[in-house]
């Protein structure tokens, strides 16, 4: 898959296959295209896919609007969660959960059922009740925002979650809570893409595969030990290796 923003090509032929139950880490230097990948997958209108296709659970993802992608089970934990003053977390979440239920042909949750669900999921990421009653992300600290992302992930129970630099701006305690939340949500039926700069997050969320993205292409794929190797050699050292383990993941172009 190729994608560009404002005429500039950022992704230059990405092949990636993610199976149910798998966790994939995507690492790479600044400007490699990591965030572009998550933006393209979720349908951010700023980006244009110029070549290739994305098949999500048998369906053509790129033909779907961003909201339909979400209802089909795609979730992005934003690198910079957006503050929405005046829109309460409760109202926001209820609208989102019920939009997904409607898409699945289910009845909307009653107020009681919904609040029960909120309570249960809030506990998972130790999100303060006070935050849940405020406007979406408004006045939240960096750590609270990231925790709130994982809370929303828990509420929406996606099939594929993309965690875009979820570790950035987190201290070690917040990182642990967020990672534990992600791990608790992991099942044999869902999958996670962890986009990160650093090995640190992968100590907590252990990937099945690590992909190195550089200049819009995946230059290497390996197991979790690749992240450790990267820690020692840096990105410059890795670029010299051929993509020897590309057959570990199939191609989906």
């Amino acid at each position: 898959m190729h994608a560009s923003i404002a005429g500039k090509e950022i992704l230059k032929g990405i092949n990636l296959q993610i199976g149910a139950g798998e966790t994939h880490a995507i690492m790479g230097p600044n400007g490699a295209g990591k965030s572009t990948l998550s933006a393209v997958l979720t349908g951010n209108p700023a980006y244009t896919v110029t070549e290739g296709e994305v098949i999500f659970r048998g369906k053509d993802l790129l033909q779907m609007s961003p909201e339909v992608r979400a209802r089909e089970g795609l979730f992005l934990s934003f690198q910079y969660p957006v503050e929405i003053p005046g829109v309460s977390m409760t109202n926001f979440m209820r609208t989102a959960v019920n939009a997904k239920r409607e898409h699945q042909g289910l009845q909307p949750l009653s107020a009681g059922e919904f609040l029960k669900l909120m309570r249960a999921k809030r506990a998972l990421v130790e999100l303060d009740n006070k935050l849940a009653s405020r406007s979406v992300n408004e006045g939240f600290s960096g750590g609270e925002k990231k925790r709130n992302e994982i809370f929303q992930m828990a509420m929406l129970e996606p099939c594929l979650s993309i965690l875009d630099e979820t570790d950035s701006g987190l201290d070690i305690d917040a990182l642990r809570i967020v990672a534990e939340g992600v791990n608790k949500l992991h099942t044999a039926d869902n999958a996670t893409i962890v986009i990160t700069h650093y090995q640190r997050l992968l100590d907590y969320i252990v990937p099945d595969y690590v992909h190195i993205l550089a200049d819009g292409q995946i230059v290497r794929t390996g197991g979790k030990e690749l992240a450790l190797e990267l820690e020692q050699t840096g990105y410059a050292g890795l670029a010299e290796h051929p993509n020897t383990s590309a057959n570990m993941v199939g191609t989906a172009q």
Binding site: T42, G43, N44, P45, S65, P66, E67, R69, A70, R71, F75, L76, F78, P81, V82, E83, I84, P85, G86, V87, N91, F92, M93, T95, A96, A99, K100, H103, S135, V136, Q152, L156
Partner: peptide, 24 residues
């Protein structure tokens, strides 16, 4: 950016705008 954030959670454009304008 708020509109896209809401869409990414499955909220349709019309409803997202309604929520934002109700807040406004």
């Amino acid at each position: 950016s708020a509109l896209f954030y809401m869409q990414q959670r499955g909220i349709g454009v019309v409803e997202a705008r309604q929520l934002l304008l109700t807040a406004f």
